[in-house]
Computed example of a mutant assay.
Amino acid sequence: MASGRGERVCFLLKVRQDRLAEYKVRHQAVWPDMQDALRDSGWHNYSLFLREDGLLVGYLETDDFEAAQERMARTDVNARWQAEMAPFFEDLDGRPDEGMRPLPEVFHLD
């Protein structure tokens, strides 16, 4: 899974059908302090892709995903953001950032 940047991470979550439009709007205006916290915690090239049925695909690059998650978990802004985002997701026990389960990478083309 190594790249020049460290780890490439992909994960899936499921956004509730009745909250898709609002989820998109909320992500057009992610709080600047949340964006800063992600960058400062080592999240790079972070993207979210949303399918019409609510399947959310996340992708990011980082030197160490577990460490980057731990750094984010220690920020106040992340706690506030996760609390606001939790109701948007299906089949989620706890916070969305705790529900991320990275998929194994099976191919990469540089």
Rank of each mutant, 00 (worst) to 15 (best):
residue 51 R to K: 08
residue 89 F to Q: 05
residue 79 A to G: 05
residue 70 E to H: 08
residue 67 A to C: 04
residue 61 E to H: 02
residue 55 L to I: 09
residue 110 D to T: 11
residue 49 F to W: 14
residue 17 Q to V: 01
residue 30 V to H: 00
residue 26 R to L: 14
residue 18 D to Q: 03
residue 53 D to C: 01
residue 84 E to Y: 08
residue 91 D to F: 10
residue 90 E to P: 06
residue 47 S to F: 13
residue 93 D to T: 06
residue 103 L to G: 04
residue 39 R to P: 10
residue 63 D to W: 00
residue 108 H to W: 11
residue 70 E to M: 09
residue 48 L to D: 02
residue 91 D to N: 15
residue 56 L to H: 11
residue 7 E to V: 03
residue 53 D to P: 08
residue 59 Y to A: 10
residue 56 L to G: 06
residue 45 N to T: 08
residue 51 R to F: 14
residue 22 E to M: 04
residue 100 M to R: 12
residue 36 D to C: 02
residue 28 Q to S: 07
residue 62 T to N: 05
residue 12 L to E: 14
residue 21 A to Q: 11
residue 78 N to P: 00
residue 14 K to Q: 15
residue 41 S to L: 02
residue 60 L to K: 01
residue 92 L to W: 13
residue 12 L to S: 06
residue 73 A to K: 14
residue 47 S to E: 09
residue 34 M to N: 06
residue 26 R to D: 11
residue 36 D to H: 08
residue 83 A to K: 13
residue 103 L to K: 03
residue 14 K to F: 11
residue 28 Q to K: 07
residue 91 D to Y: 12
residue 94 G to N: 06
residue 42 G to D: 12
residue 7 E to S: 03
residue 57 V to A: 14
residue 33 D to N: 02
residue 64 D to Y: 07
residue 36 D to N: 09
residue 34 M to R: 02
residue 49 F to Q: 07
residue 20 L to N: 02
residue 83 A to R: 11
residue 105 E to Y: 08
residue 12 L to M: 11
residue 49 F to K: 01
residue 84 E to L: 10
residue 26 R to K: 13
residue 76 D to Y: 03
residue 86 A to V: 05
residue 107 F to M: 14
residue 4 G to C: 02
residue 51 R to A: 14
residue 57 V to H: 10
residue 39 R to K: 15
residue 91 D to T: 03
residue 63 D to R: 00
residue 33 D to Q: 03
residue 102 P to M: 10
residue 43 W to E: 04
residue 84 E to K: 03
residue 108 H to I: 13
residue 95 R to G: 04
residue 8 R to Q: 11
residue 36 D to T: 06
residue 11 F to A: 13
residue 24 K to I: 04
residue 75 T to P: 05
residue 97 D to R: 08
residue 98 E to C: 05
residue 93 D to I: 00
residue 93 D to W: 01
residue 35 Q to E: 15
residue 29 A to K: 12
residue 66 E to G: 00
residue 24 K to T: 01
residue 43 W to H: 11
residue 4 G to S: 09
residue 14 K to D: 15
residue 34 M to V: 07
residue 6 G to S: 06
residue 76 D to L: 04
residue 97 D to K: 05
residue 66 E to H: 05
residue 38 L to Y: 14
residue 35 Q to M: 15
residue 51 R to V: 01
residue 86 A to R: 14
residue 94 G to Y: 04
residue 52 E to I: 05
residue 43 W to A: 07
residue 86 A to T: 14
residue 7 E to Y: 06
residue 12 L to I: 13
residue 9 V to G: 09
residue 78 N to G: 03
residue 31 W to N: 00
residue 70 E to N: 06
residue 33 D to F: 00
residue 39 R to Q: 15
residue 108 H to N: 11
residue 36 D to A: 13
residue 34 M to I: 02
residue 110 D to C: 04
residue 59 Y to R: 03
residue 59 Y to W: 07
residue 102 P to E: 10
residue 8 R to A: 13
residue 43 W to Y: 15
residue 61 E to M: 02
residue 75 T to I: 01
residue 11 F to S: 12
residue 37 A to R: 10
residue 91 D to A: 10
residue 9 V to E: 10
residue 17 Q to W: 02
residue 23 Y to P: 02
residue 83 A to H: 08
residue 13 L to V: 04
residue 10 C to Y: 14
residue 95 R to C: 07
residue 87 P to H: 02
residue 67 A to G: 04
residue 9 V to C: 09
residue 31 W to R: 00
residue 63 D to A: 06
